[in-house]
Amino acid sequence: MSTAPVKRTSIPNVAAESRAAFAAWVDAHPDGRHFGQVLIRPESSGGYRLCHAEDEGATGLQLYENPRAAREIAKLTGDGEYRPLKSAPNLRRGWALLAADAGDLVTAMNGLYPSAVVHWYLYREGSLDITNYRENAARQSGIYKRVQRLTDQGVQNAAKACCEDAVCLKKTLWDVDEEIPLEMNRGEGEIPCPEPCSVFVSFARRVRLFERENKRDLDAIGLSPSEKEDLSALVEAAATGEVVMAREAEFEKPLNERRMRYRRLTLIPKLRPPVANE
């Protein structure tokens, strides 16, 4: 094994530095700071109060005082669905968490948005290492090795489907490679995304399987087997009056939101070819 290249060594203890910087950033705004879907407000006692941004001023919130409770808060949506991606815009409401000091604040933030504080800090300092898609794909192995063959257009569509603010509040900083920037709307949130995450890699694998299928298996009107599977599932579900979506990272199932977002980009143009302007 060789040591992986370490590009950044200028900040000796980023964890400690980021804790102090984040607390100072919050302290500078007595009215509170928004971070992801969370509102963080410095308390006169020296601690911090966190709640869902939409619960600002709400009463009857369930109060937590252990910063590690944040992980439990972030685990399930309001509907009880598991949240595999903590930066998805589906943080549940109805809670408030009191953090005694900067250490507890960062522990709580790492429960709500794991590693977001340190990435926020490194990004502000201009020291955040960015890993582009091709670089990330190159080190994948096993069942994920095939993501290396995803086309540039496939990466573009997968990022639009998987990473825009409608499904992930991180600000996407990586590109396809050094030459080809992402075309997606990268988002304006506070949490930087320096590298394709495991949910994205898993989605990219699914999109690569769609791509492979496109080459060989199109029918007379140009639809692939999986496109027809998705259309059938949609018709059947809608006919019952209720479309029950697949789980957030269940990309093998037709009615997955990100999968449908990908279809909107790639299938809709096939079904509704753009009308040429006269």
Binding site: K86, S115, H119
Partner: peptide
């Protein structure tokens, strides 16, 4: 974790 956050890629930056 491999499949959850924080990922192995970023965890060492979170350690003081």
């Amino acid at each position: 974790f491999w499949k959850e956050e924080p990922s192995m890629r970023h965890v060492l930056d979170m350690v003081e």
